[in-house]
Lab assay of single mutants.
Amino acid sequence: ELSWTAEAEKMLGKVPFFVRKKVRKNTDNYAREIGEPVVTADVFRKAKEHLG
């Protein structure tokens, strides 16, 4: 699991709890794919757009 900024964690907190774990995993995987060592708010937004 990658490191997350406080802002990205806050955004994740707005995701319904029953899918939060999956969203975190998918976002981590997306960040790795694009070469990001940390999940930022920008990476979170891009993952959301990319993953739907």
Rank of each mutant, 00 (worst) to 15 (best):
E1K: 11
E1A: 13
L2M: 11
S3Q: 13
S3G: 08
S3N: 10
S3Y: 12
S3D: 09
W4V: 00
W4A: 01
W4K: 01
T5A: 04
T5P: 00
T5M: 03
T5F: 01
T5I: 02
A6L: 12
A6W: 10
A6D: 11
A6T: 09
A6G: 07
A6Y: 10
E7A: 09
E7Y: 04
E7S: 06
E7H: 05
A8K: 00
A8E: 00
A8Y: 00
A8T: 02
E9T: 09
E9Q: 09
K10H: 10
K10N: 09
M11S: 04
M11D: 04
M11E: 08
M11F: 05
M11W: 05
L12H: 01
G13D: 13
K14V: 06
K14W: 07
K14G: 07
K14I: 06
V15K: 03
V15L: 15
P16V: 04
P16H: 08
P16L: 05
P16T: 04
P16Y: 06
F17H: 09
F17I: 11
F17E: 09
F18A: 13
F18V: 10
V19M: 15
V19P: 03
V19T: 08
R20T: 03
R20P: 00
R20Q: 06
K21W: 14
K21N: 14
K21S: 14
K22H: 14
K22T: 12
K22L: 14
V23A: 05
V23T: 07
R24T: 02
K25S: 10
K25F: 13
N26Y: 15
N26F: 15
N26Q: 15
T27C: 08
T27G: 02
T27H: 02
D28E: 15
D28Y: 03
D28T: 08
D28W: 03
D28N: 12
N29A: 14
N29I: 11
Y30G: 00
Y30M: 03
Y30H: 04
Y30Q: 01
Y30S: 01
Y30C: 03
A31S: 05
A31V: 03
A31M: 02
A31C: 07
A31Y: 00
A31G: 03
R32L: 08
R32V: 06
I34Q: 10
G35Q: 06
G35D: 06
G35F: 05
G35M: 06
E36N: 05
E36I: 07
E36L: 07
E36Y: 09
E36H: 07
P37F: 12
P37M: 13
V38D: 03
V38E: 07
V38C: 08
V38Q: 08
V39H: 01
V39M: 02
V39W: 00
V39G: 00
T40K: 02
T40D: 05
A41P: 07
A41E: 07
A41I: 08
D42L: 07
D42R: 07
D42G: 06
V43A: 03
V43M: 04
V43G: 02
F44Q: 01
F44I: 03
F44E: 00
F44N: 00
F44K: 01
F44Y: 10
F44P: 01
R45G: 05
R45M: 12
K46H: 07
K46M: 10
A47Q: 03
K48G: 09
K48L: 15
K48F: 14
K48A: 14
E49I: 13
E49T: 11
E49R: 14
E49W: 10
H50I: 10
H50S: 10
L51F: 15
L51Q: 10
L51K: 09
G52W: 10
G52A: 14
G52R: 14
G52Q: 14
G52H: 13
G52D: 13
G52C: 15
